[in-house]
Computed example of a mutant assay.
Amino acid sequence: MTVRSRILILVSAVAVLAAVGLAAVLHASARADRRDHARAGGPQVTPGTVTLSGQGRMLFRSMAWGPHRDEVTSVPAADPAGPRTASGVTCLRFHAASGTGVCLQAVHGPVSDTYRALVLDARLRTVARYDVPGIPSRARVSPTGHFATWTAFVGGDSYAGTHFSTRAAIVDVRSGALIPSLEAFRIVKDGRPYRAADVNFWGVTFASDDRTFYATLATKGRTYLVRGDLRGRTVTTLHVNVECPSLSPDGTRVAYKKRVEGLPADAPWHLYVLDLRTMRETPLAEPRSVDDQVVWRDARTLVYALPGDYGADLYEVPADGSGAARRITTAAVSPVYLG
Results as ranks from 00 to 15, higher is better:
Arg4Ser: 12
Arg4Phe: 07
Ile9Ala: 11
Ser12His: 08
Ala15Gly: 08
Leu17Met: 14
Leu22Ser: 10
His27Met: 06
Ala30Gly: 06
Asp33Pro: 00
Arg34Phe: 00
Arg35Ala: 13
Asp36Val: 06
Ala40Lys: 08
Gly42His: 04
Gly42Trp: 00
Val45Ala: 05
Thr46Ser: 12
Gly48Ala: 04
Ser53Met: 08
Gly54Arg: 12
Gln55Glu: 15
Arg57Trp: 07
Met63Ile: 10
His68Tyr: 15
Ala81Cys: 07
Pro83Thr: 09
Pro83His: 09
Thr90Asn: 09
Phe94Pro: 04
Phe94His: 04
His95Phe: 07
Thr114Gly: 15
Val119Met: 07
Arg123Pro: 00
Arg125Cys: 06
Arg125Gln: 15
Arg129Phe: 00
Ile135Trp: 11
His146Glu: 12
Thr149Val: 09
Gly161His: 06
Ser165Gly: 14
Ser165Lys: 15
Ser165Asn: 13
Arg167Gln: 15
Val173Pro: 01
Ser175Gly: 12
Gly176Glu: 11
Arg192Trp: 01
Ala196Phe: 08
Gly203Lys: 05
Ser208Phe: 04
Asp209His: 04
Thr212Asn: 05
Leu217Gly: 02
Lys220Cys: 09
Lys220Ala: 15
Tyr224Trp: 15
Arg227Gly: 06
Gly232Leu: 11
Arg233Thr: 11
Thr234Lys: 09
Val235Phe: 02
Thr237Gln: 07
His239Arg: 15
Pro245Gln: 04
Ser248His: 02
Gly251Lys: 02
Ala255Ile: 07
Lys257Ser: 07
Gly262Leu: 07
Pro264His: 00
Ala265Arg: 03
Trp269Val: 06
Val273Ser: 03
Asp275Ile: 08
Leu276Trp: 03
Thr278Trp: 07
Thr278Asp: 06
Met279Val: 00
Ala285Glu: 05
Ala285Pro: 02
Arg288Cys: 01
Ser289Val: 00
Ser289Phe: 05
Asp292Glu: 08
Arg300Lys: 13
Tyr304His: 04
Leu306Glu: 11
Tyr310Val: 10
Ala319Phe: 03
Ala325Lys: 05
Arg327Ala: 00
Thr329Val: 05
Pro335Trp: 05
